[in-house]
Design a protein around this nucleic acid. Sequence first.
DNA 1: AGAGTCTTCCAAAGCGCTTTGGCCTTTTTG
DNA 2: CAAAAAGGCCAAAGCGCTTTGGAAGACTCT
Lengths: 340, 340
Amino acid sequence: MNLKQLAHMLALSQTTVSRALNGYPEVNEETRRRVMDAAKRHGYRPNPSARRLATGKTGMIGYVLPTGASVDIDPHFVEFLSGLGDYARSHELDLVLSPADADDQETTYRRIVANRQVDAVYISSPRPADRRVALVNTLGIPFIVHGRSEGFDFDYAFTDIDNEGAFREAARLLIQLGHRRLALINGDDRETFAIHRERGVRRALVASGLTLAERHVCSVDMTEENGYRATRRLLEEDDAPTAIACSSLIMALGVVRAVRDLGLSIPGDVSLIAHDDVFPWLRPENFSVPLSTTRSSIRLAGARVAERLAARISGLEEGARGEVWPVDLVVRGSVAGAPG
Amino acid sequence: MNLKQLAHMLALSQTTVSRALNGYPEVNEETRRRVMDAAKRHGYRPNPSARRLATGKTGMIGYVLPTGASVDIDPHFVEFLSGLGDYARSHELDLVLSPADADDQETTYRRIVANRQVDAVYISSPRPADRRVALVNTLGIPFIVHGRSEGFDFDYAFTDIDNEGAFREAARLLIQLGHRRLALINGDDRETFAIHRERGVRRALVASGLTLAERHVCSVDMTEENGYRATRRLLEEDDAPTAIACSSLIMALGVVRAVRDLGLSIPGDVSLIAHDDVFPWLRPENFSVPLSTTRSSIRLAGARVAERLAARISGLEEGARGEVWPVDLVVRGSVAGAPG
DNA sequence: AGAGTCTTCCAAAGCGCTTTGGCCTTTTTG
DNA sequence: CAAAAAGGCCAAAGCGCTTTGGAAGACTCT
C-alpha cells in the first residue's frame, strides 16, 4: 500500500493525502480525519526510502564505531546504549553504527554526512581538541558530545558529568580521613574525563597543601589486570599510598585482588574509592568490602543524549549548550582513617 | 556531484555511467575505464538513498535491540559487536540497531522488513521455538541466528558453539577428579544455550552413573551478585557440591567471593570451571586462583555472523546451514581432586 | 457588485539512482 | 554477400515520497 493507491482509494491527490498525514495546515480537518482513518485502517506506512530521498530526513542517529583487531569496545558502551535505545524507541528513532578503522574515522564521518545517512550523530570518549568534534562541527550535522573536548575556538553541545568535582570530593574525603599519600589509577589520560579526574584529585590535595606524586598516578586501559598491576606497583614501593582513587569498577576488581595478594587489607591498610558507572552486573556494594564510589549512571546519560539529539533534529534545541551533571559520592566500607 | 552531472561531463548517458560503475558487461572496457577514472577523480559516490529507492538494497544489516527500563543489555553484546563491526567495516556495511519494547519485538521486525530498512538481520540469545526466528523466517528476509533455537518444522541458518559438548567435557573432567556432587550455576534457562549446558553436565554425570540434583542447578541472570547468592545457597546446605560449573566469568567473580566468605578455598574445598567468552577486560588467568574455563571467543562469532550475513545478502550463501563451533577446555588452577 | 482574501485541493516537478526496451554500428556466419 | 548476432550506447520509465506553484470556489469588504 503506497501513497498513490491510498490517494486513489480516497479520490484525493497524493499531495493532499501527504499533507493530511504530515499535519500540514492547508487541509480540511474533516478530510484529514478521513485520510488518517483510511491510513490506519489499511496500515499505510510511508516508505522511508522514498521519504528520505525526498526530504533528506532519515529518522536515524549515527555513531561511528571504532573497530579493529586490537580495538576493544568499552563495556560501558552497552550501558550507554541501553539508555539511548530506551529513549530512541519511544521516538521511533533507529541507531546506525558505522564501523570505522579506529585510526581513520574521519572518512566515515564524511561519508555518513555526505550521504545523509543519519540526521544527527553523537561522539563519545572525546579527547582535548578532538578532531571528530571539529570535523562534525564543520560538516554541519547536528551532534552531541558525550563528555567534553576542549581547546576549540567554537562552542558545541555536550552532556558530561562533573568528573573533576567527583574526584575532588573523593580525594577530599580521603584527606579528611588523614590520608596524605593518595594514588590515582586512571583511564587513558589522553581522554578528557581522565584529565578532569586527575585534576580533581590534584586540586583537593593542593587545597590541603599536599601534592599528587607523579609516580602515584597511573593511566591505563580500564581492565581488571591493569588495576591489579598498577596497585602492585604502587603498594610495593617505599612511601606507598594509603588511599587509592580508581576510575572504574572493573579496575577496582584488580585493585582488591592486588591488595589481598600483598597480604594487606581494605580499608585497614589502604582506602579505596572507585568511580561507578552503574552496571547491572557488577555492583560496588557487593565487593568483599563494600566499595565507596563516585556514582553516575551512564545509562541515564545515554537516554539524555538521545533526548537532546531528537530535540536537535526537530529543531527544538539549538545553540551550543553544554550540561554537566553532578556526581554522587557514596561512602561505603572501603574507606577509613589513614593507618598508623 | 551526482550521476547526471557526471554523465553530462563525460558526454555519456546516465545509463552507461551507471552500468560502467556497477560492472555490467554491456559497456566498452575503454569507456568503463574513463568513467571509473572520472568518478574517482571527482569523488563521485552514488547517493545511497536514491540507490535504495531504486534497488531496495540498503547496505545495512539490522538488529532488534530489546530495551526497557528493566531490560539490561548483556555485556557480551559489546564483544560480539566488536567482531561484527570489524568485519562489517571491511565490507562497507553498517549496522542498524532498532530499539524495541522487549515484550513486543515483533512489531519492530515487521517494520524493518516492510520498510526494507536493512538487507538482513541477525538474532541473538534465542530460546527454543523462538518467535523471532519463526517470524523472520516467514517474513523472508535473510538472517542468521547466533545460537540456536529448536522445535521448528523448518531449518534455518545459525552459528552456535557446542555448549553441550563444552559443559559435558568440563563435567567429565571434574568427575574424573573424583567429584560426585556437581552444581551448575547457569544463565536464564529459557535460553537455548543454558539448556544445552545443563544437558552437557547431566549427560556427563549420567555416563558415570551420577545425577545432577535439582537443587544443584541455578538459573539466574548472569550478574556477580547472582553468582554469589547461588554459591552461598549451594555451599551452605548439607551435601554441598564439591565442584561448580558456571556459565559466565562475571558470575564466577561472585562464586569466588562467596567461597572466600564461607572460609572455604578454591580448589581445596570446591573446584570451579566457568565459561569464558573472552573479554579483554576480565581474564580467567587473572583470578586469584586462575580459573579453568570452557573458552570460545564471542568476538570471533560476531565476525563470522557478519561474514555469513554479507554472503547471504550477495547470494553467495544459501540454504539453512547451521554451524557449531567446538569449545576449548582450558585447565588452570581452579580444579583439583575432590576433597576428603 | 466587484475586488480581494481565505480555504482547500491538485498537477507536476523534483529527489538521484537503476533498469527496460530499442537503436545504431560492427562483426560473424552460412 | 545478405542475414543474423553481438557490441555499445541512449531515452525514458520507474522507485514512492514531498513540495512548488497554481486554481477553483467560498467568504469578506467596501
